[in-house]
Design a protein around this nucleic acid. Structure first.
Lengths: 207, 207
DNA sequence: TACGTTATTGTCCGTCCAGTCAAAAACTTG
DNA sequence: CAAGTTTTTGACTGGACGGACAATAACGTA
């Protein structure tokens, strides 16, 4: 009945995500987005409404995808919950020390939000909470399997891991290398280790 | 011999800092700076060179000041090194959960830097390293006083604390409340507690 | 008090950028 | 193949922003 679109919405959002992750909401220009997505300005407008709206789309997609990725990493049933968290943090250490300039859109939203009611704050907070829930679920399993004490505060620990991983993201972007980031991850994990287990291993230099 | 300035440079930098901390480098307009500092555009130019240069001035001041503040907090000789770190983190939890929209300029530089050679990256990295050194010094004392094991990797732990505190900063900005942030801080500290000491205390809700 | 020097003030300019308008194109359906 | 609907294309606009210019003001010094 009408002219069909030449693009797939999710592809466009994904390309836009990349732009926003590298440049940020304020710094990304509509031209950047046009170039990255291949669409014309007007098409972007028709489909999404504007830069800001497109960012929100990208943000929620990024958020879901991040939560899904973490959730998946924490779901390998060939390892115990604690081992999964450990593996996950070590993978993050590598990812975050890569040289691409990406920053998660949740962090972007967090940092670029100005007033309370630009919507960015609340969206970012949702991202934080969603992530925390994923960690909490895994920690809950760890508690059930008695890998961590029964009186451990799962909610608090979940937030703790969100905090550590966000910090690692920033450090990675600052140029802190893989070895140092891995050491940070291992240090962070010691919170979960009771009295047993290796301690203070893995000397790390920052490169 | 010539007309004297009506302003004190450090005051101007300080006011500019505030603007940059709240709005960011890209989002802050010259008008914002003019309004906040009380100077005219041209005066800003004469004295500093431009928005970017002014940001770098603000950044290095902010960096020094942050390092000095942490250093001071970690230097109270009425408490052991570990107790000082603990106190410091608890103070940060309160600060970061305050509702002002400030973000440390080091974090700003980190997130807003695009290419490698815009200078922001390196400046931000310097801020990270400076902070790490402060923590390392205190941790070294802790080791000397046998509060942490002799084989503890002080460098790595220092980076770990930088990571945690940066993460806490982001969480605070996301609206995570004081109680939850305090719980995160206490969790983070458990890394330093050997076999002794309270564990998993302080239940926390996020508000 | 006149001069040299530097700060200040206000105006102006080129650029960039988000968003709009209007016309042409493409596809479906009848 | 014609009508109708929606997308695409490309040019346009109004405004904001960083930065520059030129004239004036203020101060120290001789």
């Amino acid at each position: 009945m009408a002219r069909p679109r030449k693009f797939v919405e999710s592809d466009v959002v994904s390309s836009a995500s990349e732009v926003f992750a590298v440049r940020g909401l304020a710094a990304a220009t509509l031209d950047d987005l046009v170039r990255a997505t291949g669409l014309g300005k007007q098409s972007l407008y028709n489909a999404f409404g504007g830069k800001r709206e497109l960012f929100f789309r990208a943000l929620s997609e990024d958020r879901e995808e991040a939560a899904r990725a973490v959730s998946e990493a924490l779901a390998h049933d060939d390892a115990s919950p604690l081992e999964r968290i450990r593996g996950h943090l070590l993978v993050l250490a590598i990812e975050f020390s890569s040289s691409d300039r990406r920053v998660s859109l949740t962090t972007r939203a967090l940092v670029e939000s100005t007033g309370e009611e630009d919507g960015l704050s609340t969206a970012a907070r949702a991202g934080i909470d969603q992530l925390a829930e994923v960690y909490a679920a895994c920690l809950e399993h760890a508690r059930e399997e008695k890998e961590i004490p029964a009186d451990a505060n799962v909610q608090s620990l979940a937030m703790y891991f969100v905090s550590v991983t966000r910090g690692m993201e920033l450090l990675g972007r600052a140029g802190v290398g893989r070895a140092a980031l891995t050491a940070v991850a291992l240090d962070a994990l010691r919170v979960l280790q009771g009295e047993s287990g290796a301690r203070h291993g893995d000397p790390a230099r920052r490169d």
